[in-house]
């Protein structure tokens, strides 16, 4: 099995630096091992938390700048996303299957985040942009 997620224009939120960060998150998630490898999985999870933190911080800053009205709600969703990632990241990863399940979760987690909540500020951003 080789789970991978490729970024494409459907994922674009229309703000270059945020798109770039989403691509970095995809790359990190693609690097989650599909076999037991505690040291590598830890390294990958640490990177995932670090970039997620940076990404959410920048996203919140951008939303503040554009006057996005649902900023608080979106920030709360970010905290929930971190909570879910934490829960799943602390499960035992002592079988290949557990690693694969973790990777599938992470892929769904990022896709879901972009397609449901990020697309909402993307739409808002578009209406504010002079065309």
């Amino acid at each position: 099995m080789n789970h991978k997620i490729a970024w494409n224009a459907d994922f674009s939120v229309g703000i270059d630096k945020l798109d770039l960060q989403h691509q970095t998150l995809f790359d990190i998630i693609n690097g989650i091992p599909e076999e037991v490898n505690e040291q590598r999985v830890r390294t990958t999870i640490v990177r995932l938390f670090k970039y997620t933190h940076e990404h959410f911080a920048l996203e919140e800053e951008e939303m503040r700048k554009m006057g996005y009205p649902r900023l608080e709600e979106h920030a709360k969703i970010h905290e929930d996303l971190i909570a879910r990632l934490t829960e799943v990241s602390t499960l035992p990863l002592d079988t290949d299957q557990a690693n694969q399940e973790f990777k599938s979760f992470a892929i769904d987690w990022i896709v879901d985040h972009i397609q449901t909540i990020d697309m909402d500020y993307a739409r808002f951003h578009k209406t504010k942009e002079p065309s």
Binding site: Q39, R42, K50, I82, T86, T90, P92, L93
Partner: peptide, 18 residues
């Protein structure tokens, strides 16, 4: 204890962010 270390690290990131 990789598993336990990972759990602590993950929790540290979560609570540090909060």
């Amino acid at each position: 204890d990789e598993k336990k270390a990972r759990t602590c690290i993950v929790r540290l990131f979560k609570y540090a962010r909060e």
